[in-house]
Structure formats: structure tokens, C-alpha cells
Write a protein that binds this DNA or RNA. Structure first.
Lengths: 343, 343
DNA sequence: ATTTAGCACTCGAATGCAGTGAGTGCTAAC
DNA sequence: GTTAGCACTCACTGCATTCGAGTGCTAAAT
């Protein structure tokens, strides 16, 4: 329904506006090499594109800027895939070159590289460890009355917390308990730990540990893990360089929203294949009205683990960012699968 | 050298300015209950105070604002100690009421409470774990070729990383290794782990583990821990509400500075007793020119552990903030000492 | 039937110019 | 030593003016 020329003009306007952050006028478009017709012609098409909802005017004597619908069309139909430059490849590879590290470190490092490469805000939802299976459990006595409980999952995640150890439990009881737990809880998903403790392990404990009730009481609350995976942010200050965030109040709204763990979890949790682009109000959050969010999932052995994403102004370099997010999410999946795939 | 009246006026100006963020004029001062003399008199004293460097004028027809020297004098000589309100006591206690947790969680929680209470930025330098002593070491096999190395210190800190396990090392070797390590490395400070591994443990390993060279090669790099303790920030967006940070560029400078781990470590590391107040350029950092930093150390059993602090505009509520930081650092010391004191 | 040149028009941004008022410094009186 | 009085300063506000980029429309050109 749009003519080729209109598409060309829309494409040119979006590109120009992404670059300059200034409303684009008919004359400046006409100067581009790929445009062969006069400003007046362009103006006519621009008027049509505006009527169709792809463009907007900040005020009547200014150039045009893309509307949300305009960006959407651009992303869905006009965008050419972006092949990473050598530098970009290198940046991404830097994450994986280091000696093997804790998963969290890799994730965190990914977030940093992502924000550095794009100059936007990067968000990485840490590995979903709720369904991960227990690999090992340890209780390390610390001082009289306290110990450290350590849980290791098959995805290499380590969870630890300090617990209070009642006097009634002696060291050999503790040792026996740990052995039993390792025997019985190995392979149980984290979210079922507590239930399993009561349904299956309790009976065994009863036979081997005198004060098994105290032991249960000590462990039970600690095995009720919080569901919340951590979200890593990087480059939060990057938006301060974006002209659309000259307004302190907008910045505050946005940054405060990023602190709302619940909302952000909801946004990032939804797994999806491929790249997802949410433009402006598609995010259903007032604070994100002028923002776009580009996300991709990463997984281990085909199992969804978490999400990486970039948050920037709607006037975002979609082409490059999509390319980068796509590549990184795939590389991350490869790395983690190699490392932690059951083997 | 300053008259009582001048002190009174200085005090009044600083108080007023901290409250209003507006230059303070002679007339508004004269209206205060504790001031009994006329605007003209006040003007004379203000002129003197300005000449002595305690006050400044933004421009010739505006009121006065405190200079850095003025704040310094105020903090050193005029400030009355602040007794926490019931609400404040409650806020602080909320940190300690929860069931015993990981140290890092307590620290992080402290940072959040601190920033919420003050509406400034809170910084907490995590527990110094470099000199902490090893309590326990574990190697949990994960998949073919990889395992998780876990170190627990006597301060309850848990460090973990993924390591590559060469095929040549079989499970029983690994188990023997872990036993030997626990025997020989227990009580060794983290910063000496690697040296001790080579100087003392190597000989023992040689006798019990066939491929002990591979084992050493696998462990050695992992025991060379990074010195950097983590710094926790909270309330970074709080400064956006401060009128002195209307200017996006200043905000960016400041927030970027907070990302510079090295510099921030330097600033926070210096242990000191009691409360330290650094005003404006005393911080020796351009980005902090309009800021003041109030810090206090926390410790475990008399041993310096880390630092908590508040960063805000030089026009800061010194009285309240000093009170809060003081109380919290002492409470934190008490809690951690109870939890992790050898015993 | 398109495309383009020409031109009047719009409107934000920038500039210049009183007027206002909070605040000062100085002088002279108390 | 303190205060009243007064001229002076200077940021800020509102208003009028200009400037220019960009539009929409019409009529001519292709």
C-alpha cells in the first residue's frame, strides 16, 4: 500500500533522525545520494506518510520525525541485517577469552560489553536457577552457633547463606546430615528442595540423627529460596548523553523504574525465540514511553536460562543493536552449553 | 576570633541554606526567633564572614551561601550531635531483624536503608576478605572437565569459581586433594593461599596424588584472588532530586566517577576511626567538587572490615547524616562481631 | 498525471529591552 | 556599636521583534 518511493523516504527519514535526533526536512532528504526527486515531491509523500501514521511533526513548521508506528514498520520491513564489524566481533569475543569463571561473572561481563558497545543501557537477567537441579550441598561450621550453607546447582550456580546452628546439634550429626542430604537431594530442582526435605529426607534423618527435628528446623527455611534471579545493569548513565533525556525528570522516572525489580523481572522473564523489539508504548510502561527495548534469550542445552537486552531511546540504532544482541545471545548460549551441559 | 554573633549568623545561614538551597539574605535571617538584631547589623557581620572566607555571594545582589570553609567550620564547631528519632532507629533496626543472612546481603541491605533514610547516595565497601582466613575449601565436580571451586573464610565470605579439570585427574584424586587442602590451608589468609600451596602443600600432594602437577596447575591460578572488595551503591538516582544537580553534565560526571572502581576503592579503603567528613574539594576529585562524603568504618572484633558512607551535595544535612552513619556503623560492627567473631 | 518551482505562511528559537524585586554596601543618625 | 535609609546591582520576567527552517498549496513544466 505504500509506494516504493514512500518506503525509500520513510527509510531515509528514520535513518536520518536516528543519526541526528533532529526533525528531518524535505530539503535535507533530497540531498541524499539515493534520493533523486525534489523537495516538493518529498513533501507530498511526507504528508501522505504522516496521514498514514508513520510520521509526526513536533510542530507545524518543523521537519518530520518517525512515529512509533514508523519505527515499527522500519524494524519489521526496512531494516537490513547488520553484519558485525571486526571491532564488534572482537569486543564480544573478549567476554569469552578469559579463563573460565563463575557464571555470574560472565553474565556481568556480558552486560558491560553490551552497554559499552551500544552506548545504551544493557540489562541481563541472570541464569534461571529455580529449576536448576541440586548438585551438591555443604554445611561449613563457622563459629559456635553459626555455619554456612552452600548449594551448588548443575548449572554451576552457587548459593550460600549463613544459618544458625543450635547447640544441640553436634559436629558428627552435622556431617551425617550433609551426607544424607547429598545422597537424597542430588538432582532435585531447587524449587522442590524444601518439599523433598520434608517428604523424603525426614524419614531417613530420623533414623540417623538424634536431634533430627532441630536439623529440619534449621534447614527448612533456608531451602525455601527466593525465586528472583538477579538482573544486571550496565551503562545506566549512558542515557544521560541522549538528547531525549535532557529532562531530569524523565531520567529519574526511567532509572527509578529500573530499580523496580518486580516489574523488570516481569518484562525480562518472558522467554522468546529470536530477537524481540518493543518500541515505545509497546512496553506498557509510562517510564518507557520514549524507549525501546531489544531482548534475546540465552539458554543452556536448549533450556531457557535468562535474557539479555538493550534499553535505549526509541530513536535507537536498531540495526546495529539487533545485530549485537543477536550475536551475543547466541555466543552466550554456546559457551554456557559447553560449560554446563550435562556431560 | 569570630564573635558570638558572627557564629550565630554563620550557623543560621548554613542551616537555612541547607534547608532551602537558596542564597540567604539578611532580612530572612533577622526574622528567625533566635536572632534579635536588625538586617543591617547582620549585613555587616555577613560582610566580615565573607571577607574571612566563610561565606560567598553567587552574585553581588544575592544573599550569601556558605563556602567550603564555612561548611567545614560548621561541621567542626557548630554542629550539635543528632539523636536519632524513633523512626530512624526503627529503620536501622530493620536491617538486623531479619533471619541471619549472608554477609553480603546484610551489607547490601545496609546500603539501601542508608540511602532511603538520607535521600542521598550511599556507598558501602564490602568486607575486606583479603586478609580473612580460609575456613574450608571444596571442589564440586560439575560436568566432564569442569568443577566448581568454593572457598569459605572465617568471616563467612564464600568465594566460588568454575575451574577446568583435566581428564588426567580422577575423582578419588580430587577427593584426596580436597582433604589435603583442607588440612593444610585452613587458617591461611586468602592472600597467602597461592604461596602456601606451592611452598607447603606441594610436597604433601606429591606423596598422595599421582598427577599432582596437573592438580597444582589447575588450582594455582584460581587461588590468586583479586584484591578488590565490592562496593555497593544505593540511591544513585537520589541526587537527581537535588537542585545542584539540575545540570545533566554534572550528574553524568558524578555517576561516571562512581563507576571507577579503582578511584572509589582508594577513597573508601582508608580506614579511620569515628566519622570522617570530606567537604567539596577536600575530596580531590573534580566530579565531587559540589559533594560531601561522610564515612565511617565497620569492623569485626576490632579488625577493620569495610566502610560505609554517604555522598550528597555539599549542601547536605550534616547533622542528621552524621548521626545515622555513626549509629549504623556501630550497629554493623556489633552484629558482624557477634556473628563471626572467632568462638 | 506526475513532478517541480515558487511563494506565502507558520512557529519555535534567539535577541533586545524595559520593569521588578530581593538583596547589598555605605552613610549618617541613634 | 547598632540601625534606618537609600542608592545601586543584577538575575529574572514578560513582551515585542526578528530570523530562518520548513511546510502546504498553487500553478507551471514534464
Amino acid at each position: 500500500m505504500l509506494t516504493d518511493r514512500q518506503l525509500l523516504i520513510l527509510h531515509a527519514i528514520v535513518d536520518d533522525y536516528i543519526r541526528s535526533a533532529e526533525p528531518v526536512g524535505s530539503r535535507s532528504i533530497s540531498k541524499r545520494d539515493d534520493i533523486t526527486f525534489s523537495p516538493a515531491t518529498i513533501r507530498n509523500d511526507m504528508a501522505d506518510l504522516e496521514e498514514l501514521g508513520f510520521l509526526e511533526k513536533p510542530h507545524s513548521s518543523a521537519g518530520r520525525i518517525p512515529s512509533q508506528k514508523g519505527y515499527r514498520y522500519y524494524v519489521d520491513n526496512l531494516l537490513m541485517p547488520h553484519d558485525l564489524t571486526a571491532d564488534e566481533e572482537l569486543d564480544i569475543r573478549s567476554i569469552f577469552n578469559e579463563r573460565i569463571q563463575e557464571v555470574e561473572t560472565v553474565i556481568q561481563h556480558s552486560a558491560r560489553v553490551l552497554s559499552n558497545m551500544t552506548s545504551y543501557i544493557s540489562l541481563v537477567l541472570g541464569p534461571e536457577m529455580f529449576e536448576a537441579k541440586l548438585r551438591n550441598i555443604q554445611i561449613i561450621p563457622l563459629s559456635k552457633g553459626s555455619a554456612i550453607l552452600i548449594l551448588v546447582t548443575d548449572t554451576g550456580h552457587v548459593e550460600n547463606q549463613t544459618i544458625a546452628v543450635p547447640d544441640s546439634i553436634n559436629p558428627s550429626d552435622l556431617e551425617r546430615t550433609v551426607n544424607i542430604l547429598n545422597e537424597r537431594l542430588m538432582g532435585v530442582p531447587l524449587y522442590r528442595l524444601r518439599d523433598t526435605l520434608h517428604s523424603e529426607v525426614e524419614n531417613v534423618l530420623r533414623n540417623h540423627v538424634k536431634e533430627y527435628k532441630h536439623v529440619l528446623h534449621m534447614l527448612s527455611p533456608s531451602l525455601d529460596l527466593e525465586k528472583g534471579e538477579k538482573i544486571f545493569y550496565s551503562g545506566k548513565t549512558n542515557i544521560l548523553s541522549q538528547p531525549e533525556f535532557r529532562d531530569i525528570d524523565k531520567v529519574r522516572m526511567l532509572l527509578n523504574m529500573l530499580e523496580e525489580d518486580k516489574t523488570m523481572h516481569q518484562i525480562l522473564r518472558a522467554p522468546h525465540t529470536g530477537i524481540q523489539v518493543k518500541i515505545g508504548q509497546e512496553n506498557k510502561l509510562e517510564a518507557f514511553d520514549n524507549c525501546s527495548l531489544i531482548t534475546a534469550s540465552y539458554s543452556i542445552g536448549g533450556k531457557h536460562m535468562g535474557t539479555i537486552g538493550i534499553l535505549g531511546p526509541t530513536r535507537m540504532e536498531y540495526r546495529r543493536v539487533i545485530g549485537v544482541v543477536d550475536t551475543l545471545s547466541k555466543d552466550l548460549t554456546k559457551l554456557l552449553t559447553n560449560l554446563y551441559q550435562q556431560g
